[in-house]
Design a binder for these strands. Structure first.
Lengths: 222, 222
DNA sequence: GGCAAAACTTAAATTTAGCTTAAAAAAAAC
DNA sequence: GTTTTTTTTAAGCTAAATTTAAGTTTTGCC
C-alpha cells in the first residue's frame, strides 16, 4: 500500500513515516500543499494523509483539487482544531475521515485500515502474472510454489510490483527501498536485482523484471 | 527540458544530475556561482536549481543577476538554513520556490514539475502525423506499433519534434542534444539521423525527418 | 557533365551501464 | 561470544550505446 503524507512539521512527518513503514506501507512525504497536490496527481496512492494547516496550499484546497481531478482516493485529514464546524467543512471538501492531533498511532492505523478496506477488496495481495506477494505475511508465491526472500529482496520486489507498468528509476528505488537520499555511487540495486531474478527464475517466474537502460527497471503486467 | 544545477558539493550535484536524467531532463552542472551565472546567461534553460551557499558568487547574487538580465526562468533554491528570514530573502531576490536540505527526491521532482507546469504546460505526449512520443515514459509509437530507441536517439527525435515545422540547425542540435558548446567537426548527428531514419522507416514512419542542406534538419507536420 | 561540399552509410573503436561473482562488513540468531 | 544470515562493497566481465573514422553517395553549382 502506498501512502502520501502531506505534513509540514518534520517531526510528525518523520514519526508517521517510520511508524507506517514498520507496518509495511510505502510512504512518501510532501512538506507543503502544492507539492503534495502535485505528487498526489502524478503518482497513484492508496491513501492520502493530509494535515489541515500546511503552507502553500491548505489541506482543504488540496482535498478539493484532488476530488476535482476525479480521484476517489481515500483522504484522512489531521487537524489540531476540533470544532464540529471544521470537521464538517473538511468532510464537505471531500475528505473521508479525520483524526485530531494529538492522536494515538494505533488509532490512526485503525482508521487507515478502515479506509483501505473500503476501497480495495484485494485482501492485501499484489500480483503480476502468476507471481503473488503478500506484504502482510511477507510471503511470495509463483503459481503455488512459495519462495523465500530476505527483507530487502522483498521490499525491492514489492516496490517494483506496486509500481507495475511504470518505470522505476534507480533514484526512486534507492530512495524508497533503501531510504538513501544522497548516494549515486552504489551498486546495491544491481546486486539485488540479480538476487531477485535468480530466485524468481528458479521457480519459473523468470523475465518478470525488465531493465530500462540508463533509467531503471519495470515489471509489466503483460 | 533543460535544467541547470548550481551546486558546489560534488556528491549532491552528481546525485541530482543522475536522478533528473533518469527522468529525462537534460542537466548541466556548475560548481560555483560565477560559472553558473555565466551558463545561465548564455544558454536557455527551462529551470535553474541553485544552492544558496556556493563559492565565487552566492545563490542570492546569481538569482538577482539572472533577474536583472530580464530572464523569467523559474529558479528553485536549495537551502540548508530554514529560518523564515532566509526564505523570504531568497524569494525576494527572485527565486520561485525553495527546498530545504535534506529533501526527498520525490519532493524535489514534484516542485520542479509545479514550476514547469506554470511556465509552459508540458503535455505528456508530442506528435507529428501518426508518430507519437512520450517523454515521460520514454515510449515512441508509430500509429500503434511501439518503437524502441536508445537514450540519444530519443533525445534527438524529441528535440526535432519539439521544434516541428522549424529548422533545427546542426549547431543547435549539437548544443541541446549533445551538450557540446564549442565547434567541433563531429559527424555524430549524421550517424544518429541515419539510426533514427532506419528505425522509423522499419515501422512505416519514413520521410519524417527532412534534410535542409547546409543548415540542418526539419520535421514537418504536413 | 564535372567538381566540390555536404550528407549518408557502414564498420570498427571506444566508452559506459549493467550483470555477476566473491568477499568483506554488518546484523541477527543461536 | 560464536555462528549464520543478510547486506554492502568491489572488481572483472559482457553487452549495449555512443563516437570516430573512412568510404560512398547525393546535391548544387559552374
Amino acid at each position: 500500500m502506498r501512502l502520501l503524507i502531506i505534513e509540514d512539521e518534520p517531526g510528525i512527518a518523520r514519526f508517521l513515516k517510520d511508524g507506517l513503514e514498520e507496518e509495511y506501507f510505502a510512504v512518501d512525504i510532501a512538506h507543503d500543499g502544492r507539492t503534495g497536490l502535485d505528487m498526489a496527481m502524478t503518482n497513484e496512492y492508496d491513501l492520502l494523509i493530509v494535515d489541515w494547516m500546511i503552507p502553500a496550499l491548505s489541506g482543504i484546497e488540496v482535498c478539493r483539487q484532488v476530488r476535482k481531478g476525479g480521484s476517489t482516493v481515500p483522504i484522512l485529514f489531521l487537524t489540531a482544531k476540533d470544532t464540529l464546524e471544521d470537521v464538517v467543512f473538511g468532510l464537505d471538501a471531500g475528505a473521508n475521515d479525520y483524526i485530531k492531533k494529538p492522536f494515538e498511532f494505533e488509532e490512526l492505523l485503525a482508521r487507515i485500515r478502515v479506509q483501505l478496506r473500503n476501497t480495495n477488496r484485494t485482501e492485501d495481495a499484489l500480483s503480476v502474472g502468476n507471481l503473488t506477494i503478500n506484504p502482510v505475511t511477507h510471503q511470495v508465491f509463483c503459481a503455488s510454489t512459495e519462495l523465500t526472500l530476505t527483507p530487502k529482496e522483498f521490499a525491492l520486489l514489492e516496490y517494483l510490483i506496486r509500481n507495475k507498468d511504470r518505470v522505476c528509476t534507480r533514484s526512486r528505488i534507492i530512495e524508497h527501498v533503501w531510504d538513501i537520499h544522497f548516494d549515486s555511487d552504489t551498486s546495491v540495486i544491481d546486486v539485488y536485482i540479480t538476487f531477485l531474478r535468480r530466485k524468481l527464475e528458479s521457480v519459473g517466474c523468470g523475465n518478470i523484471i525488465q531493465t530500462i537502460r540508463g533509467v531503471g527497471y519495470i515489471v509489466r503486467e503483460s
